[in-house]
Simulated assay, not measured.
Amino acid sequence: MQTLYGDREKCYNCYRPKSSCMCSYVNSIKTKTKFIILMHPKEFKKVKNGTGHLTHLSLKNSELFIGVDFTNHKMINDIISTCKSYILYPSKDAINISREKLYDNDLDIQKDMAIFIIDSTWACSLKMLRESKNLQTLKHISFDNNKLSQFKIKEQPADYCLSTIESTLSVLELLNFWKLENIENDYLKTFLNPFEKMVEYQLKCVDNQLSNAVRYKIKYKVIN
């Protein structure tokens, strides 16, 4: 679905201008695990660089909520009360799912699992956790990262930092490893397609801008 955005059409799915819409590259994955993407309002405004929307579109069993304080959010509280819920956050007490299975007793297996993923900067993520009292009850999970982010258009705060969609892929791969999911490898291999195409498009735009700037300087020198 598209709508006019200024003088351009905008896609309501990925929230990008139609000219740079990435929806055609999305190959949605069906998971047993429910994913809840909590997007900071500042990320919502980052239409060009945001990967939270692409993550949501790539997961059939997912929800996306925008805000800072989710303490009294009914849908989120319902999910927490009915599911075995975790939040992806690398704290010192986090369960490292690269080394440890999330759960293995029958009582836990009877409940659906939900994983909350914060789509924000580190500073804003900390504020969201601090203000959302309900999120403070969730166990943290983390993973060992040996990948470099492919977000070439955006400088990450450290080498181990990944974008939202890249982090989600790592979680999916580990859930598969622990037999908590049974996702076909072909789906995992194409999960980052919309992200990679977005980065490719952005790099092309930067190259065009640089080329135009060089041409302008040459033209300006010739005229003057």
Rank of each mutant, 00 (worst) to 15 (best):
Y103P: 02
Q156V: 06
I76Q: 05
L64E: 07
I97L: 12
S81Y: 04
L88S: 05
I118C: 01
L138C: 06
S62M: 11
M128Q: 09
L135A: 07
S132K: 08
T137N: 15
R99H: 07
I97C: 11
S58Y: 12
S91F: 05
M75V: 08
N145P: 14
H56Y: 12
Q150C: 04
S98H: 05
L59A: 07
D159G: 00
S142C: 15
T82A: 13
K139L: 14
C124K: 15
Y89Q: 06
F116E: 07
I66A: 01
I95D: 07
K147F: 15
S149N: 08
D108W: 00
M75R: 15
V68E: 14
K133Y: 08
K111N: 13
N72G: 01
E155W: 00
W122H: 10
G67I: 12
A158P: 03
T121C: 05
L88D: 03
D69T: 13
D106C: 01
N72V: 03
L148C: 11
L102A: 11
L138T: 06
D78C: 08
V68S: 03
A94W: 12
L57N: 02
I76G: 00
K154Y: 06
R99Q: 10
A123L: 15
R130M: 08
E131S: 12
N61T: 10
N105I: 00
Y86A: 10
Y86P: 09
R130T: 11
N134D: 02
T71W: 01
A114H: 06
K147R: 14
K127N: 08
N145F: 09
E100M: 09
I76C: 05
I80R: 02
L107N: 07
I117V: 14
L107E: 07
S149C: 04
F116L: 13
S85Y: 02
I66C: 13
L64H: 09
Q156D: 00
E131D: 14
C161Q: 07
F143E: 06
D106M: 10
N77M: 04
R130D: 12
D104E: 13
F143S: 09
K127Y: 05
K139P: 08
L129N: 05
L135H: 11
M113P: 07
I97E: 00
S91M: 10
P157M: 02
L129M: 13
L64W: 09
Q136Y: 06
Q150H: 11
D69E: 14
D106Q: 11
T137A: 11
M128L: 08
K147D: 09
V68Q: 09
S132T: 02
L64F: 04
W122K: 04
I87E: 03
Y160D: 11
E131R: 04
M113C: 14
T121Q: 06
I117Y: 00
T137C: 04
Y103I: 04
A158E: 11
I141A: 10
T82G: 05
I118R: 00
I66Y: 03
I80N: 02
D144N: 15
R99V: 00
D78M: 10
K60A: 01
M75S: 07
E63Q: 05
D108I: 05
D108Q: 03
K60L: 13
Y86T: 11
K111T: 02
N61G: 10
E131N: 06
K101M: 10
I79C: 10
N96R: 13
F70A: 04
S125N: 04
K92H: 11
Q156L: 08
K74L: 14
